[in-house]
Amino acid sequence: MTAPTLPAPSGTRPRRPAPAARPGRHVLTDTSAMIGRSLRLVRREPDELLLALVLPVMLMVLFVYVFGGAMSVGTDYLTYATPGIVLLCAGYGASNTAIAVEQDMSGGIMDRFRSMPIASATVLVGHVVASVVKNLVTTAVVLGVAHVLGFRSDATALEWLAAVGVIVAYIVAVTCVATFLGVLVRSPAAAGGFGFFMLFLPYVSSAFVPPGTMPAWLRGFAEHQPVTPVIETIRGLLVGLGSDAQPVADLGPTAALALAWCAGLVVVFLVGAAWVFSRRRRQ
């Protein structure tokens, strides 16, 4: 190999003048660069991408053809369970953000970001946005498979829009919890544990069976955990039914509760993530 030659110093940009300490000035540039980065990283994670596409198909087949026949929920089980499968897949996909964040925290790249004049917390924003994009794709796949299997919605365009909005809110909420865990834990295995949790949380809600069929102690949890109002809202918007398979009269209070849960989770865990993030490496 020949001796490398650096680009001519004279022809390039001069050394920076007296620095101005305003790291917030470039927040938009930093954020968009970080979003671009996270989206590229997500696209190049073949295992995760495959899982995001295969999991919906598997779950759909499992619920509709394996369990579906034995379920009696008062309506066609495909109609009843599709919103739940949407949330299950999106929530699981969002929980994997914890792994990506943990990798960044333990890798050398965070040192580089922190030693540059950027708002390094924007790296977390990149992960959140990438998670929303990725899991909306998953959601589209779930709905596509459901459609092929015979799922039909009588929702208006406005109701569809509202349903997608609630799904996005749910994805963002789960992603924020995942981000918090990602900056908190110190190993990939611990970060992966959240995915396991999110894979099971929807089962103890009104996603797949009416909570009324559960024993009282479990029903208490099922009726008061965040997944239930989110599910009820989406099911109400898409197929107009409640967990008891009866038409819903007024969806307002449930939707408000769902959005309140999501907003609460976002605020608490995003603040927590930012707090841990800023302290973890500089002790």
């Binding site: 620095p19 101005a20 300490a21 990283l41 190049r44 994670e45 050398g108 790249i109 040192d111 004049p117």
Partner: peptide, 23 residues
């Protein structure tokens, strides 16, 4: 106290590679 200003004039190359493997 002036970390932001310091970051304007330095660059760090640490021991563990500070680049993305997937890019």
């Amino acid at each position: 106290h002036d970390a932001a200003r310091v970051r304007q004039v330095i660059s760090l190359t640490g021991q563990s590679a500070a680049v993305d493997e997937k890019q």
